[in-house]
Design a protein around this nucleic acid. Structure first.
Length: 451
DNA sequence: AATTATTTGTC
DNA sequence: ACAAATAAT
């Protein structure tokens, strides 16, 4: 009797460089791919709307690719500890393989399952696949997590190089007797009434093949301009790999090794280092999305929330050109250029004095690339409450940023053209006065930390 | 991964 | 008068 292997796919929706899938193939028994939509396990953050849209496309692609090679993807919904055990029983599986997750609630689920399944005599193995370096292997001399990026990344680069990517399997022997699967459509991951995903469909093609094409294209054609033009939102000079890395359609190992092979990807690879830093920080501080990493920021005197100001920011009607352009790019495409993310976040926190957590939640719901580490990490970086954060007095002037990085107004014209008309909308806040108010608020933190 | 105010330099 | 360097936040 065969005892099938279950490959539990999570944030690794790919066939190439997938150590869990490789282990299942090497085991030699029939393989069942499993994806669990878990909106119930305690502490696991439900996906945002844009993320659900991406997941739908990426799962459809993965299912098709597995089927082409003789395998299958089973979809099930519910708390993972129960659902995975049920799948093991239904399939009479002898082994379960997965690639590791690094968020607190996810690790708790995985550790519990590993223990229960092993007790039941099921072989279980987990693998490193979503980060270049395991978080517990990168610490300061004192054994504490790094709090500053440069020494963190230096330390990473002094470790043994990340392993080479695994090749894509040609054949995947599926189980003879398939087990029940939900239908992807029944999960209703796609928006309807209203269908707001038109801009996402025009902008993105989820799935591993498109992800690999984009990586090749970026490294072959765009790397030469990257260092110079990466900060210009209209230049199209960035990799656009963030959602692909978020969903694991490409692995950081593939990006790393193909990047190193070009011999000129240092600046770009350091961005991969920031991704790594964010995840390591989440590993050590699982409540990154809710708690100030620097607890002295708990003293920050957020004024009473003005809901109309928050809503104006969300919808891109602040009367500040670059902010409005960015917020609308986000709303339409599920993405925003990195520099503009910093500007819009700084504006929310430092000009509107709205708690970074509210901005983080909006990005969580609207970005196709938001993950549990990078989104809160970078919001805290801008707020000044995070790891290696911008000093509190580093307040962006969004108009000056537009002059510097969108001097010809191409980006503003694409997303918020009324700002270039004869009758541009008025700003909802005075940049100069609100800057002074923010400095005063940060001064409270400084005093509280001292006194 | 900054901005603004002030001082110094150059014509 | 204006640019460039520097200091302060």
């Amino acid at each position: 009797m065969p005892s099938p292997s279950i490959v539990w796919f999570r944030d690794d929706l790919r066939l190439a460089d997938n150590p869990a899938l490789r282990a299942a193939i090497d085991r030699g028994e029939p393989i069942i791919g499993l994806y669990v939509l878990d909106e119930e396990s305690p502490g696991i953050r439900p996906l945002g709307g844009a993320a659900r849209w991406w997941l739908n496309g990426s799962l459809a692609s993965l299912a098709e690719r597995l089927a082409e090679r003789g395998g299958a993807l089973v979809l099930r919904r519910g708390p993972a500890d129960r659902v995975v055990r049920e799948a093991v029983t239904d399939a009479a599986a002898g082994a379960v393989f997965w690639n590791r997750r690094y968020g607190g609630p996810e690790r708790a689920v995985d550790a519990g399952l590993k223990a229960v399944l092993r007790d039941a005599g099921v072989e279980v193995a987990s693998f490193a696949a979503s980060l270049l370096f395991e978080p517990w292997t990168v610490t300061t001399g004192a054994g504490t997590p790094y709090a500053v990026f440069s020494p963190f990344w230096r330390a990473c680069q002094s470790l043994p190089a990340p392993r080479a990517p695994l090749p894509e399997p040609r054949e995947i022997a599926g189980a003879r007797h398939p087990i029940d699967s939900d239908r992807l459509d029944d999960w209703e991951l796609l928006p309807h009434e209203p269908d707001w995903a038109g801009g996402l469909r025009e902008t993105w093609e989820p799935g591993e093949p498109a992800a690999r094409r984009r990586l090749r294209e970026f490294l072959n054609n765009d790397l030469g301009h990257y260092a110079r033009a990466r900060d210009e939102p209209a230049a199209g000079a960035t990799s656009l790999l963030s959602p692909r890395l978020r969903w694991g359609e490409v692995s950081p190992h593939q990006v790393w090794h193909e990047g190193v092979a070009t011999g000129r990807a240092g600046k770009f690879l350091s961005e991969l280092g920031w991704r790594e830093f964010a995840w390591h920080t989440l590993f050590h501080s699982p409540d990154l999305a809710t708690q100030n990493l620097r607890r002295e920021f708990d003293a920050f005197p957020w004024p009473r929330l003005r809901p109309s100001a928050l809503e104006a920011w969300r919808r891109g009607h602040t009367g500040i050109a670059l902010v409005d352009a960015g917020m609308r790019e986000l709303w339409v495409t599920g993405y925003m250029h990195n520099r503009v993310r910093m500007v819009t976040a700084s504006f929310l926190i430092k000009n509107l004095l709205i708690d970074w957590r509210l901005g983080e939640q909006w990005f969580w719901d609207t970005l196709v690339d938001a993950d549990a580490a990078n989104n809160p990490f970078n919001w805290q970086w801008v707020a000044g409450s995070g790891a290696d954060a911008a000093p509190y007095f580093r307040i962006f002037n969004p108009d000056l940023q537009a002059k510097k990085f969108d001097p010809d107004g191409h980006y503003v014209r694409q997303w918020a053209p009324e700002h270039l008309s004869d009758d541009p909308p008025p700003p909802i806040v005075d940049l100069r006065e609100s800057r002074q108010a923010a400095l005063a608020a940060y001064d409270v933190v400084k005093r509280a930390a001292r006194g």
